[in-house]
């Protein structure tokens, strides 16, 4: 068996577990907010009214996006390594690109909503 870098593997595992803990909190808050928000019907105006210009919501969703960016590509990497015969370097590249995409799209949305507050 080739062991590319055991230390990196163990650190990635830890990063995924820690990000999972962050995600558990973020998802609970996110779902709780959804349940709260749809009480009187859902509208774009209401969402914008809540998150636009709010430093707290911007910080929250930034943390959420970063946790997803760490968590999902590591899992994707494990799945691809286990279920496909793709070379490991190719898998690493694909998962890095997935991380970049997730971070870009997620942070862009969080930033745009924040900026709707008229900063």
């Amino acid at each position: 068996m080739s062991a590319p870098n055991i230390q990196t593997e163990a650190r990635l595992w830890l990063a995924q577990r820690v990000s999972a803990m962050v995600l558990a909190v973020c998802i609970a808050v996110h779902l709780g907010t959804i349940v709260y928000a749809v009480r009187g019907g859902l509208s774009a105006a209401e969402i914008i009214g809540r998150v636009a210009g709010s430093e707290a919501w911007f910080a929250f969703y930034s943390v959420f996006v970063i946790a997803v960016t760490v968590h999902a590509p590591i899992g994707l990497r494990a799945i691809l390594n286990e279920m496909t015969k793709l070379p490991k370097t190719r898998v690493d590249l694909l998962c890095f690109l997935a991380a970049v995409l997730l971070a870009y799209l997620g942070l862009k949305v969080a930033w745009r909503f924040y900026m709707l507050g008229g900063a």
């Binding site: 055991i6 230390q7 163990a10 650190r11 595992w13 830890l14 577990r17």
Partner: peptide, 15 residues
């Protein structure tokens, strides 16, 4: 073992 290796990796002991 997962916990022990994670701790060792943090300390840089798996190099």
């Amino acid at each position: 073992l997962k916990r022990a290796t994670a701790l060792a990796a943090l300390k840089g002991e798996l190099e």
